[in-house]
């Protein structure tokens, strides 16, 4: 199996001296292509930091992150931004849609940032898959939480990234909606051949994952 995302001896420390917080401590992780990996840990276990490191949002203290065979250490901001918008799609707990843009605009935004024209058929297909057809012109603040998160998923998928990184995607949703959103995330990952890495503290959510990685104190437990 082909590794799409690798972390090698990854460390992220905050502070110094006695106050050092080892958010991620010497962690090795390999995610294979097409996998659905759930990273489970209590809050404060360093799982969010790990996701940020994997997505190139944050610089590691030491160690490497290799995305699709490319080590992102030492890349310029410009190159990192490019990797983020081409290889990675993010889904956040609080949806983080751009409030001034409608659903469609939000979805095609990463493409726009990359200077690409959206593949309309593909985007429409995603929208249909996620059941957002009737909402494309709506503004984010008129949508329910589930709809917003589905829009976020569509946004993450629209640029055809290899990896979707989701940070507590169901954290703000009720159980039923959360289940549905997870199902969709899974479905869209499967349908469009994306690797899915989901961070959650809810083990019930992790049930549907191919593999569950438990993080404790910045390391992989067990």
């Amino acid at each position: 199996m082909k590794a799409i995302l690798e972390a090698k001896k990854l460390c992220k420390y905050y502070g110094s001296g006695e106050n050092t917080v080892r958010a991620v401590d010497n962690l090795d992780l390999t995610v294979y292509h097409g996998e659905f990996v759930a990273i489970v840990g209590k809050s404060g276990s360093g799982k969010s930091t790990l996701l940020h490191l994997l997505g190139g949002l944050d610089d590691p203290t030491s160690g490497d992150v290799i995305i699709d065979g490319k080590n992102i250490a030492g890349l310029s901001d410009e190159q990192l931004a490019k990797i983020r918008r081409r290889k990675i799609g993010f889904v956040f707990q609080s949806y983080n849609l751009v409030p001034s843009l409608n659903v469609w605009e939000n979805i095609v935004l990463p493409l726009g940032l990359d200077g690409r024209k959206p593949d309309e058929k593909y985007v429409k297909d995603i929208i249909r898959t996620l059941g957002l057809e009737s909402k494309v012109k709506s503004m984010p603040n008129t949508l329910s939480g589930g709809q917003q998160q589905r829009t976020a998923i569509a946004r993450a998928a629209a640029a055809k990234p290899s990896i979707i990184l989701a940070d507590e995607p169901t954290g703000n949703l009720d159980t039923k909606t959360g289940d549905e959103v997870m199902a969709m995330l899974r479905l869209s990952a499967k349908k469009y051949g994306q690797t899915l890495v989901v961070i959650t503290h809810n083990e019930d959510i992790a049930q549907t994952a191919d593999r569950t990685v438990v993080i404790e104190d910045g390391r992989i437990a067990g």
Partner: peptide, 9 residues
Amino acid sequence: VIKMFSFVR
């Protein structure tokens, strides 16, 4: 049986 947006639960 609960009908959701794109799934039935």
